[in-house]
């Protein structure tokens, strides 16, 4: 009687093809979001402590290490935003009668909202 060869499992499947690599990077974006949120909370705590504590932390934020971290965090945050918006029409297949609302419309609406919120944040902080 023939004996089947058992199915193979790879411990490194997430390195084997580009779609899987992008998936893992997408998921790891959460690590950078959490780390960044930690930095933001420290900054907020320094602001509450007063202007000299804030000044010290601004000095720290000017170091290449912090700037590099924020650059990487920004890239991961953008990866998260792009992939998240891409996924929205998958979970919410809006329909108008027989016609499905074009996924591009839903995705586009998310980009518009992100842009509007970005402008709002900049106006509140800078003006």
């Amino acid at each position: 009687m023939a004996r089947p060869y058992p199915r193979e499992r790879s411990n490194a499947w997430f390195l084997e093809r580009w779609p899987y690599r992008v998936f893992v990077l997408r998921e790891l974006s959460a690590l950078f979001l959490a780390l960044y949120m930690g930095v933001l909370l420290v900054l907020a705590a320094r602001v509450h402590e007063g202007s000299s504590a804030f000044r010290d932390y601004v000095d720290a934020l000017q170091s290449p290490l912090y700037l590099a971290f924020h650059a990487v965090a920004l890239l991961f945050a953008l990866l998260h935003s792009v992939t998240w918006f891409q996924a929205v029409p998958k979970g919410l297949p809006l329909r108008r009668g027989e016609q499905r609302v074009a996924p591009a419309l839903l995705i586009g609406a998310n980009y518009v909202a992100m842009l509007a919120l970005t402008v709002l944040v900049l106006v509140v902080v800078l003006s």
Binding site: L33, Y36, V39, L40, L43, V47, S51, F54, R55, V58, L61, Q62, Y66, L67, F69, H70, A71, A73, L74, A77, L78, H80, S81, W84, F85, N110, A113, M114, L117, T118, V121, L122, V125, L126
Partner: peptide, 25 residues
Amino acid sequence: TALLVPALILVTGFLVPAERVEFGR
């Protein structure tokens, strides 16, 4: 996070160290 975090990083990661944001604000 998808809607907001890039803007927040822009502000606290780059504009604050560039001293473009006032403490009072």
